[in-house]
Amino acid sequence: MEANIAVPSDGKNTWDGGGVRPFGASYGKMMMWFFILSDALTFSGFLAAYGLTRFKFIDSWPIADEVFTHIPFIHGEFPMYYVAFMTFVLIFSSVTMVLAVDAGHKMQKNKVAWYMFATIIGGLIFVGSQAWEWNTFIKGSYGAVKTTDGKILQFTSPKLDENGNQILNGEGQIVYKQIALTDFVVGERMDSKESHTRKNGLWWMSGDEVTEYSVAQVMASYQKNPAIQIRSEQIDMGKKQKVVLSREKGAEELAKGKLVVEGANLEVNEYGNTIFADFFFFITGFHGFHVFSGIVINIIIFFNVILGTYEKRGHYEMVEKVGLYWHFVDLVWVFVFTFFYLV
């Protein structure tokens, strides 16, 4: 009868589901596992969609270690290092979390508190780093031109050694280095656009920022400097590098230029195909949101630990359940890291 009729109880084990333990697992722990399973399927859906889109554009997808090259406070190009640091931070916070759970099994309140605190700090460092990555991504590093064909043209130049000679790689080919717009664009805007401020705007409203350079300006600078060549989005599948166009072909493509793209947003980005930025924001955003909610929940449980709630309860299972969620967040990151940055 009790399976389908509500029976009055003393309320002490309301959240326990009546103390039944199928598979020896408590109600709360089993439900956390099933939630994790469903959330894992959600992320797999996103990553699978990313995989489909990448396969669809396999010969023109941006190359990750040409996009994510910065470290905070340090100038220069360091592909992959900061993302590797973020991965370590999250793994380490997972370790402190499981150590907290372990201390909870031994009913060591202070240890649990310290390890949870370390986990929260690790989480905050990760979220802060991800926010910084977004900022750098949105701000952009090089700048590019978008053509009427919908293609993104980036700029590159042969790498030179200290004597000004072209560097050749192992097969005797010229090594190219991507170059920023600021490094070669000179001269006047030539298109009379400017950002209005309160002083000279008739109706001053915030709106689309005018880019720093105009298309005509970029085209003129390209013509003036014979060392500049254009990198197309297309990948040479034999070398897995972006194809560099000859000066003539580059000029042809540049003539179709429609707007200068600096940075990235949901509509256009300087790294290549629009959908690359869309997926980046969506998937890392979803993951970052999970990390953030994990941090908030960890803080709540941290305070509960300090208040002695779990000592009174006689077990630290809540720490364990929250630990499961935190490890899930780490797991997702391990896969996102692989499929966005490595593969």
Binding site: L37, S44, G45
Partner: peptide, 25 residues
């Protein structure tokens, strides 16, 4: 019940979608 479900569903979805992406390309 957790791991086999996840592996089965994820493998199935990924297989189908990657084949599809390849076809689209």
């Amino acid at each position: 019940s957790v791991v086999w479900t996840a592996i089965f569903l994820i493998s199935y979805l990924v297989t189908l979608l990657l084949i599809e992406g390849d076809y689209l390309h």
